[in-house]
Amino acid sequence: VLKALERTRQLDIPDEKTMPVLMKLLEEAGGNWSYIKLDNYTALVDAIYSVED
């Protein structure tokens, strides 16, 4: 979780936006981090930006 938060902080995305999206992605992935961690957490960042749209 810390590495995911560090990555999104680099992009000026607050933890308050990151955590709900991260928890949803983890739930959808059955707790499997490998998809979320791919390409420096690209799936997480993309999911956060899609929620903002």
Rank of each mutant, 00 (worst) to 15 (best):
V1Y: 13
V1Q: 07
V1A: 06
V1C: 14
V1D: 05
V1L: 14
L2F: 08
L2W: 06
K3D: 15
K3M: 09
K3F: 01
K3R: 10
K3I: 09
K3E: 15
A4T: 03
A4R: 02
A4G: 04
A4S: 03
A4C: 09
L5G: 04
L5S: 03
L5M: 05
L5T: 04
E6I: 10
E6R: 05
E6C: 09
E6Y: 07
E6Q: 12
E6L: 09
E6M: 10
R7Y: 11
R7S: 05
T8P: 02
R9H: 03
Q10I: 09
Q10N: 08
L11V: 05
D12Y: 10
D12I: 05
D12G: 15
D12W: 08
I13Q: 02
P14L: 06
P14S: 09
P14C: 06
P14W: 05
D15M: 03
D15G: 04
E16S: 12
E16W: 15
E16D: 11
E16T: 12
E16F: 11
E16V: 09
K17Y: 08
K17L: 12
K17I: 15
K17N: 07
K17Q: 10
T18W: 04
T18Y: 03
T18P: 00
M19R: 04
M19G: 03
M19P: 00
M19T: 04
M19L: 15
P20D: 09
P20H: 10
P20Q: 11
V21D: 02
V21M: 07
V21L: 06
L22V: 03
L22E: 00
M23N: 08
M23W: 09
M23T: 09
M23V: 10
K24W: 09
K24N: 08
K24C: 08
K24Y: 07
L25P: 01
L25Y: 04
L25W: 04
L25A: 03
L26K: 00
L26G: 01
L26W: 05
L26A: 02
E27V: 10
E27I: 12
E28L: 10
E28G: 08
E28W: 10
E28D: 11
A29Y: 15
A29T: 15
A29I: 07
A29R: 09
A29N: 15
G30R: 09
G30M: 09
G31A: 05
G31Y: 12
G31I: 05
G31E: 06
G31P: 04
W33D: 07
W33Y: 03
S34N: 14
Y35Q: 13
Y35C: 11
Y35M: 12
Y35I: 13
I36A: 04
I36Q: 01
I36Y: 02
I36L: 08
K37F: 11
K37C: 15
K37V: 15
L38F: 12
L38C: 08
N40C: 07
N40V: 05
N40W: 07
N40D: 10
N40R: 06
Y41I: 05
Y41H: 01
Y41G: 01
T42M: 13
T42L: 14
T42G: 13
T42Y: 11
A43T: 09
A43K: 11
A43D: 02
L44V: 05
L44T: 02
L44D: 04
L44M: 02
V45S: 01
V45Y: 01
D46M: 13
D46E: 14
D46V: 11
A47W: 03
A47N: 04
I48G: 02
I48K: 00
I48W: 03
Y49S: 09
Y49G: 09
S50T: 11
S50E: 12
S50N: 11
S50I: 10
S50G: 13
V51L: 14
V51Q: 14
E52Y: 13
E52D: 14
D53Q: 14
D53F: 12
